[in-house]
């Protein structure tokens, strides 16, 4: 999200079903997107890191919807919708409904086409029909993010890695409130 040439690059490794990731997104990252990403000061990179936790039943499917949306240039909208509505789709597994609410029917068709062969956890009655003979290509992107995360190494989500003017800083993890994070970003920008 934002300008790839921004002085600060922030990569956030997260799991759509992790409560701290949702909290971090809704109470910090939203403000960062609004004030710093839009202004070209920060380039925000979402990295999927679905955790192998039994309760996180739909985390891979959510990551697939997000990745498919990114491939048609609609990541920001879908990312926000996934976090905003997480309690709803966590309860019934209906991620499709949440995504459809923020895309046009044509965009939704393109996303569904990519996602349909991949869905494993979504209840069968809520899955879009998979086009015949098409295999899941989205998992390669998610696995790529996970490999990057393991190299950090990501031990918990959310984990953020900040690169300022080409210098990669040590990774941090857990929720950080927006005023404290803003203070750090302002400090980096003033260097």
């Amino acid at each position: 999200m934002g300008n790839p040439n921004a002085p600060i690059v922030m990569e956030v490794f997260s799991d759509y079903m992790c409560p701290q990731c949702r909290n971090f997104y809704m109470n910090s990252l939203v403000y960062m997107i609004q004030d710093y990403v839009s202004a070209g000061k920060v380039y925000l990179v979402h990295r999927d890191f679905p955790l192998p936790i039994a309760q996180h039943k739909y985390n891979w499917d959510a990551a697939r919807w997000g990745t498919a949306a990114a491939r048609i240039g609609k990541f920001e909208e879908v990312d926000r919708a996934l976090y905003d509505n997480e309690p709803a789709w966590e309860a019934d597994g209906d991620i499709q409904k949440v995504v459809a609410a923020v895309l046009t029917p044509a965009e939704m068709k393109r996303v569904q086409k990519q996602v349909a062969p991949c869905l494993t956890q979504t209840p069968a009655n809520l899955r879009p029909p998979a086009p015949a003979g098409q295999s899941c290509s989205l998992d390669a992107f998610i696995n790529q993010d996970m490999a990057l995360g393991k190299a950090v190494p990501v031990q918990a989500t959310p984990t953020y890695v900040i690169t300022s003017k080409g210098n990669r800083l040590p990774a941090g993890s857990g929720f950080v409130s927006w005023p404290i994070m803003k203070q750090f970003i302002d400090s980096l920008l003033s260097q």
Partner: peptide, 16 residues
């Protein structure tokens, strides 16, 4: 300025 940045980074850890 760089020490202030380090303290701001430490603040994020305290906040977490």
């Amino acid at each position: 300025a760089s020490v202030k940045t380090s303290l701001a980074m430490f603040a994020m850890q305290v906040d977490s």
